[in-house]
Protein backbone atom coordinates (compact mmCIF):
# COMPACT_ATOMS: atom_id res chain seq x y z
CA UNK A 1 0.00 0.00 0.00
CA UNK A 2 1.04 3.59 -0.50
CA UNK A 3 -0.46 6.70 1.03
CA UNK A 4 -1.07 9.65 -1.28
CA UNK A 5 -1.68 13.05 0.34
CA UNK A 6 -3.01 16.24 -1.24
CA UNK A 7 -2.68 19.76 0.09
CA UNK A 8 -4.10 23.24 -0.48
CA UNK A 9 -5.51 23.85 -3.97
CA UNK A 10 -5.01 20.20 -4.98
CA UNK A 11 -6.83 18.95 -1.85
CA UNK A 12 -9.81 21.11 -2.78
CA UNK A 13 -9.72 20.19 -6.46
CA UNK A 14 -9.60 16.44 -5.71
CA UNK A 15 -12.15 16.68 -2.90
CA UNK A 16 -9.98 14.69 -0.49
CA UNK A 17 -6.88 15.17 1.63
CA UNK A 18 -5.55 11.79 0.58
CA UNK A 19 -6.04 8.13 -0.02
CA UNK A 20 -4.48 4.77 0.53
CA UNK A 21 -4.07 2.37 -2.36
CA UNK A 22 -1.94 -0.55 -3.49
CA UNK A 23 1.15 0.55 -5.40
CA UNK A 24 -0.22 0.56 -8.96
CA UNK A 25 1.23 -2.03 -11.31
CA UNK A 26 4.18 -0.68 -13.26
CA UNK A 27 4.60 2.39 -11.03
CA UNK A 28 8.14 2.76 -9.68
CA UNK A 29 8.72 6.50 -9.59
CA UNK A 30 7.01 9.88 -9.18
CA UNK A 31 6.63 10.39 -12.93
CA UNK A 32 4.76 7.09 -13.32
CA UNK A 33 2.55 7.71 -10.29
CA UNK A 34 1.67 11.17 -11.61
CA UNK A 35 0.78 9.67 -14.97
CA UNK A 36 -1.35 7.01 -13.26
CA UNK A 37 -3.26 9.70 -11.33
CA UNK A 38 -3.74 11.73 -14.53
CA UNK A 39 -5.26 8.61 -16.07
CA UNK A 40 -8.24 9.05 -13.77
CA UNK A 41 -9.20 12.11 -15.80
CA UNK A 42 -11.24 14.98 -14.34
CA UNK A 43 -9.53 17.19 -11.77
CA UNK A 44 -6.54 14.82 -11.57
CA UNK A 45 -5.82 15.14 -15.27
CA UNK A 46 -6.36 18.90 -15.15
CA UNK A 47 -4.24 19.67 -12.07
CA UNK A 48 -1.38 17.23 -12.73
CA UNK A 49 -1.06 17.83 -16.47
CA UNK A 50 2.37 18.57 -17.90
CA UNK A 51 3.13 22.26 -17.51
CA UNK A 52 0.99 22.72 -14.38
CA UNK A 53 2.89 24.00 -11.36
CA UNK A 54 2.86 21.43 -8.58
CA UNK A 55 5.39 19.81 -6.28
CA UNK A 56 5.78 16.26 -5.03
CA UNK A 57 7.27 14.95 -1.79
CA UNK A 58 8.13 11.33 -1.02
CA UNK A 59 8.36 10.35 2.64
CA UNK A 60 8.38 14.02 3.72
CA UNK A 61 11.25 15.06 1.42
CA UNK A 62 10.91 17.12 -1.74
CA UNK A 63 11.06 14.81 -4.73
CA UNK A 64 11.32 15.07 -8.50
CA UNK A 65 9.98 13.03 -11.41
CA UNK A 66 12.74 10.43 -11.06
CA UNK A 67 12.35 9.86 -7.31
CA UNK A 68 11.52 6.20 -6.64
CA UNK A 69 8.20 5.22 -5.11
CA UNK A 70 8.04 1.94 -3.18
CA UNK A 71 5.44 0.02 -1.27
CA UNK A 72 4.81 1.69 2.10
CA UNK A 73 5.80 5.19 0.92
CA UNK A 74 3.88 8.39 1.54
CA UNK A 75 3.69 10.56 -1.57
CA UNK A 76 2.29 14.08 -1.37
CA UNK A 77 1.16 16.37 -4.19
CA UNK A 78 0.81 20.10 -3.55
CA UNK A 79 1.11 23.52 -5.19
CA UNK A 80 4.34 25.55 -4.98
CA UNK A 81 4.66 26.75 -1.41
CA UNK A 82 3.55 30.21 -0.25
CA UNK A 83 4.51 30.52 3.41
CA UNK A 84 6.45 33.25 5.17
Amino acid sequence: MIRIAYFARLREAFGTDGEQCPLPAGVADVAALTQWLCGRGGAFAAELAAGRAFRVAVNLDMADAATLVRDGDEVAFFPPVTGG
Binding site: A8, F78, P79, P80, V81, G83
Partner: peptide, 19 residues
Protein backbone atom coordinates in the same frame (compact mmCIF):
# COMPACT_ATOMS: atom_id res chain seq x y z
CA UNK B 1 11.14 25.18 0.53
CA UNK B 2 8.85 24.86 3.55
CA UNK B 3 5.40 23.44 2.80
CA UNK B 4 2.99 26.19 3.82
CA UNK B 5 0.12 27.51 1.72
CA UNK B 6 -1.88 30.72 2.16
CA UNK B 7 -5.53 31.07 1.28
CA UNK B 8 -6.83 34.65 1.30
CA UNK B 9 -10.34 35.81 1.97
CA UNK B 10 -11.11 38.83 -0.24
CA UNK B 11 -14.39 40.67 -0.96
CA UNK B 12 -14.59 38.62 -4.20
CA UNK B 13 -14.19 35.32 -2.35
CA UNK B 14 -11.42 33.03 -1.19
CA UNK B 15 -8.33 32.34 -3.31
CA UNK B 16 -5.06 30.48 -2.95
CA UNK B 17 -2.01 32.71 -3.03
CA UNK B 18 0.21 31.92 -6.02
CA UNK B 19 3.93 31.36 -5.58
Amino acid sequence: QAPFWKKEQTPAGARWVEA
